[in-house]
Structures are given as C-alpha cells and as structure tokens.
Amino acid sequence: MDIKNNVPANKLIFPGQIHETPDGGFLITKLDEVINWARSNSLWPLIFGTSCCAIEMMSAADAKYDWSRFGFEVARASPRQADLIIVAGTIVMKMAPVLKRLYDQMPDPKYVIAMGACTISGGPFFYNTYSVVKGVDHIIPVDVYVPGCPPRPEALLHSMITLQEKIKNEAFFRKS
C-alpha cells in the first residue's frame, strides 16, 4: 500500500493530530502501532444511507470495487456494532436528531466519513432551502470529507484509506 506517499503532505495534516515526539517509550509505541493496525483494518461501517450517495456506497461494496479488500465489508445494521458511520446523503432538520442518536449509540472509538457534497456543506441544497442541514459537521464531528455528487466508489475507497492513515497516527497509550 503506497497511498501515504501519494497523499500530498498538506492533506496529511488534520486538526488535533498528535505528532510523534522523540521521547516516546519503545514498548508502548509498538503497542500503539499494533492497536492502530488492528483498528484501521477492521473498520465496520454502519448501513446508513439517505440518498444518492448510498447507491455509490453499495457500488463500493459490490464485486467490482469490493471494499472487503480493506476489511470494511462487515456492514452493520446496528450502531452498537459499528466503528464507522459513512454519512451518505443529505441530512435534513428532521433527520438530524436521529443521526445524533445513532452516533451516540456507537461504541468508541468511532469515526465519521462525510460522503458527498450534501453532507459536507449542504451542497446542491445550500441556497434557498428551508429544511436542509448545511453540513453534517454541525451535528457530529467528521474525520474525513470526500467531495463529489456523488463521489465515485474509488473516491470512497480513497477516503477510507485516508481514514486508515489517520487512525494509524493515533495515540492510545501515549496520551499526555
């Protein structure tokens, strides 16, 4: 996997990222790496699709794109068993409390991918609408944004690999 080399350096910086410091212990650093490796390669997404992006999410699950190559295939219908919520589709005011409740039900650590223009910023429904939430990050914290309307399945896979890169940089034991 050479995706890290292909991501531009400025894209790897994200808010709240913990940068490695030279005085970390060898043992816990290695333990962290093992935990992050395990976490990043068994992300179980929640089946959560509201509109068009959900179809592309299904396409990513099918035989042609096959997200099970990365350990994503165990899509769960219950938030209690999921690590990752791919918000695929517009979120409206009436749906927002439901989404928040779903997110709250997920066990830690949990990750969010905002898929498509609607979830990032309201997208096509930003202007002149009365019922659309202008960006899902008003409701739940988002880890990775993937633009497109809808993004193609490869773009979704790219976002999931980008999320894996983020998880691999996390610190579990090295908390200050």
Partner: peptide
C-alpha cells in the same frame, strides 16, 4: 407530513419567511 409538528409557517407560501434560509 414532512416537517416537524412544531414547524412555524408553511414553506411553499409566497409570504413564507425563514431567517435561516440563505438566498443566492
């Protein structure tokens, strides 16, 4: 049917005002 029970106003009326709506 579509909006919450406590929604104020009727959106497709021409005189509907929504301060959260962003005009282009």
């Amino acid at each position: 049917l579509f909006l919450e029970e406590d929604w104020k106003g009727f959106p497709l009326r021409k005189n509907y005002v929504d301060e959260n709506m962003i005009k282009l």
